[in-house]
Simulated assay, not measured.
Amino acid sequence: MKKNVLNCVGWALAGLSASFAAVVAEAAGPVAATAPLTTTSAAGSGQAMLGCLIEPDKVADLGSQVIGVLDGLRAERGDYVRKGQVLAQLRSDLERATADVARTRAATEADLRSAEASRDLAQQKMRRAEDLVVRNFIAHQALDQARADLQVAEQKVLQIREQLRVWGREVSVAEAQVGLRSIRSPFDGVVVERYLSLGERVEEKPLFRIARIDPLRVEVIVPAARYGTIRAGDLATVRPDLPGAVPLDATVSVVDRVVDAASNTFRVRLSLPNPDHRLPAGLRCRISFDDAPARPAGGKNARLIDGLRMEASLNPPPKMR
């Protein structure tokens, strides 16, 4: 009998202990949930290494505005070229001949000199007619005729001068057509590929591919948890996957405003100076951002955890009843 009573008392004490522990945990729960949360994240400390790709700053496939036959090549793959440098020449015999004819016609002054001589003669006739009218040797009708002839001669001079200006503009048009037969580089860079050879017909297919490698462009995909910690103008350390390559500093130029929902990432573009063209494009690399986490938009009780803002409440926990 005593043994049964002791067992009942033991079970009752165990039940009271469990109930008291549950009440304490429930009361402490809100405190633990609202306390300031701090964690050391590799991404927040700037020590995390992300994979990246070094690309040319600009790439252009050069074509021709006109259809023609490739007559000359002045650049090959691997050559460094300057902006405006002629890389190829199309056959332009007809265009050059047309430009020569336009120059000759614009330089012709015989018609202008003839018109000026006729104007001078008309002026002399008018003066003579005015003198004869004063002496009553001729009628006023003859004087009117002389004045009309002078006006016609002056208009003829103006017409020829305007025609010469038009011919001068035709020279510019002809020279522009000749210029279209020259393929020029749009910027400083290196010839990546040459697609056509001498004698081939140039239509829609490009002739060259030009890439600008100073500066280089670094593309990196960053987890969305780091959105807001990277801004345009920030510095980052780029380590190219090339034997003997030293770490280089790059500047953030573009930060995407849209996060890719499928991968939960966003893209960042950086500019990497390459004045001596020592670093080739197309390399893989690793990058680390040395910036500090952005200050939360909330109050002083806000914390950043893995790039997300957490707000901590300082309200006291509810009292136990």
Rank of each mutant, 00 (worst) to 15 (best):
S92N: 10
T40M: 15
R269Q: 06
L248N: 00
V191P: 00
C52G: 06
R96D: 12
L16H: 00
I183E: 07
G199L: 02
L121H: 05
N264C: 04
A261C: 13
L87E: 08
A261D: 01
D61G: 03
A174Y: 06
P186S: 04
Y80Q: 09
Y80G: 12
Q85M: 05
V246D: 15
L158A: 13
D111R: 10
L283Q: 09
E26R: 06
R226H: 11
P273G: 01
N315Q: 14
I287Q: 11
G44D: 14
L143E: 04
G233C: 05
G10S: 14
Q123H: 09
P296H: 07
V192F: 05
G168H: 02
L73P: 03
P317A: 14
G84I: 01
L112G: 11
Q151I: 09
D249L: 11
A294W: 10
L180D: 08
V24Q: 01
T38F: 12
A14R: 05
E162N: 13
R135E: 00
G199D: 02
D188K: 03
A33E: 15
Q159N: 12
G179D: 05
F289M: 05
G179R: 08
F137H: 09
L90P: 03
R309P: 14
D291I: 11
P296Y: 10
I67H: 09
E95W: 03
L62I: 13
E109F: 15
E193P: 03
V23E: 06
V133W: 00
R105N: 15
F289V: 12
L158Q: 14
P240I: 12
R184V: 14
V133G: 05
Q163V: 10
N315I: 14
I183M: 08
A176S: 02
W167E: 10
A117C: 07
L164F: 14
L207D: 00
L143W: 01
R105H: 04
L180S: 10
G51C: 12
G299P: 14
R74A: 14
I54K: 07
R135L: 05
R74K: 11
D79Y: 08
V218N: 02
S172L: 13
A35F: 05
I210E: 07
T98W: 02
R295L: 14
A48N: 10
A110G: 10
L304S: 06
G299Q: 05
D290P: 13
P247G: 05
L235F: 11
T108P: 09
A99D: 09
R82D: 03
T251V: 15
D241K: 12
H277T: 06
E193C: 07
G46W: 03
E76V: 15
A88M: 10
A281M: 01
A261R: 14
L283I: 10
A107G: 10
V246L: 11
L62H: 00
R309A: 15
L62K: 07
V133D: 02
V152G: 03
Q89W: 13
R217Q: 02
I67G: 08
L132D: 01
A122P: 04
A18L: 09
A292R: 15
V173N: 03
V238K: 04
D100V: 15
R165Q: 11
A22T: 12
L216H: 04
W11S: 08
V166H: 04
L180Y: 09
R278N: 11
E175P: 12
